[in-house]
Amino acid sequence: MKRKIFSGTDLFLILPLLAAALLAILLPGIKKDGARHAVIVLDGETAADVNLDALTGPERHTFGEVEIEFSPEGARVLASPCPDKICVRTGLLTKNGDTAACVPERIVVKIVTEKNDIDAIAY
């Protein structure tokens, strides 16, 4: 008599374990990233919080004299009256924690998601 590899009862045992293992692998990656936001802090106060994942194309906004572009790809400072343009040269901010700061104009642009790989950057 040919014997089956798994009986019906065995499948009761194996399937829940497989399902749990699969979810254990997939769920943290799905949930923890969350939506990417660009947070604008002007003079110590949050001036805007833009959900980048909800955008369909680039949008330009001005905060004081600083022009910022938000897009599904990220956020960038397009123009600022500051002399050294460090904020503009920082370029496109895409990852969680990416920051561009314009100290003379007292404005900070930061990408924020729930996932937190890097806590701070020493420079």
């Binding site: 009862t9 009761f12 045992l13 829940p16 374990l17 399902a19 749990a20 293992a21 979810l23 254990a24 769920l27 943290p28 799905i30 949930k31 923890k32």
Partner: peptide, 25 residues
């Protein structure tokens, strides 16, 4: 014995799921 093994396996899977769901959400 087989029934007991199935019950234990289901309980283990449920526990594992609970931990994963708690951590994620």
């Amino acid at each position: 014995k087989k029934r007991l093994a199935v019950v234990l396996a289901v309980l283990f899977a449920a526990g594992l799921l609970a931990v994963v769901l708690f951590d994620a959400f």
